[in-house]
Amino acid sequence: MLKIENLHASVEDKSILRGVNLEVKPGEVHAIMGPNGSGKSTLAAVIAGREDYEVTKGSITFEGEDIEELAAEERAHKGVFLSFQYPIEIPGVSVTNFMKTAINETRKAKGLEDMPAKDMLKLIREKSELLEIDRKFLSRSLNEGFSGGEKKRNEIFQMAMLEPKLAILDETDSGLDIDALRIVANGVNKLKSKDNAVVVITHYQRLLDYIIPDFVHVLYNGRIVKSGGKELAHELEEKGYDWIKEEINA
């Protein structure tokens, strides 16, 4: 589904990704871990199409198509979704209207008519129940005045609404208490199928107790330096990252 080969990317001439290789197949859950500043969020943003980052080398292929030249919205239309580490507050745009616009623009890109209002309401009701989101919440301005946990839950609600093929969750566990973490993980698990894939970016093993990864990768200095199964996450939790750094530097 997603194939990243020798990806180099920089922001303002500062090189951040230095040869990332990653392949994600349908039905798989991948976790990307790594110390601060290793390039995890950059990798997420580059896959989603953020324009501040310049891809200097390598390729990103999604379902066999090179998506590197595509705008963020075109990638979204193809089924790429990024759950933001820091969701943006947009005063004056309600959660509902934002979702309506996103869904109908995606449908338009696929040559479909707008979703009938009735179906939209039904979908919103269904998905907000899945994430245990209060109805009142949906008429509020997007992320404005939301708590950290509410913002993250709202991200997964958007994911549920858009039903992406590839969901990248960037530090979705940060700022969540244990109940919110469970709700979010439960939401993600319910949305998982053999046809879609999830990439979880996280510092801690905590979230991976709920969203069980098939593969765990360690990103360090802009490269994936180690890959393994879910037991690698446990090892990192116990031992930290220093042993990996030593291994690399040796």
């Binding site: 989603a48 199409g49 953020r50 324009e51 501040d52 705008a71 963020a72 919205e73 990638r75 979204a76 239309h77 979704f81 990024l82 933001f84 969701p87 943006i88 947009i90 934002f98 616009t101 996103a102 869904i103 623009e105 995606t106 890109a109 958007q158 858009l162």
Partner: peptide, 16 residues
Amino acid sequence: ESAMFYMRSRGIPEKE
């Protein structure tokens, strides 16, 4: 700009 990217990453085209 970050609000723009946020909206576009949800499939809302630049102009919209």
